[in-house]
């Protein structure tokens, strides 16, 4: 899993260096799949306090629903949540790449690091 030595396999190293983000997305997808399969179904921190202190009733339902509760409508079980997770990962990745492209300016690569 370590990096290739710089002297050899330049082409492969370039590809790895360029497309490492595919591996990064795969790690995120695995985390989402594990979450779908094994995550605790107990109410978490804030919700637990809301139930305990009796203000859970203050919750207002949103006036719309797309993929509520990380369960794709029409599917059930773990698959519905895995797909929801993949959809979410794809959306936030795409949004941030677009944001990055809009904000980051092209740099002159004159003797900078790496």
């Amino acid at each position: 899993m370590t990096e290739q030595p710089p002297a050899t396999g330049t082409r492969r190293r370039t590809l790895l260096a360029r497309y490492w983000w595919v591996g990064g997305l795969a790690v995120a997808a695995i985390v989402a799949a594990l979450a779908a399969a094994f995550a605790s179904a107990d109410p978490d921190g804030l919700d637990s306090v809301a139930i305990q202190q009796g203000f859970e009733d203050a919750r207002q339902q949103p006036g719309f629903s797309i993929i509520p509760g990380y369960v794709v409508p029409g599917l059930d079980g773990t698959a519905a949540t895995i797909i929801a997770g993949l959809v979410g990962i794809a959306i936030v990745f795409a949004v941030m790449v677009v944001v990055g492209r809009l904000l980051a300016r092209r740099r002159k690569r004159t003797g900078g690091p790496s």
Binding site: W21, G24, A28, V31, L34, A35, A39, G85, V92
Partner: peptide
Amino acid sequence: PLLGVTAAFVFAGQMFN
């Protein structure tokens, strides 16, 4: 790319209770 991957990982991590 790191910007996008970090967002993806944070999203996935927040799903895991």
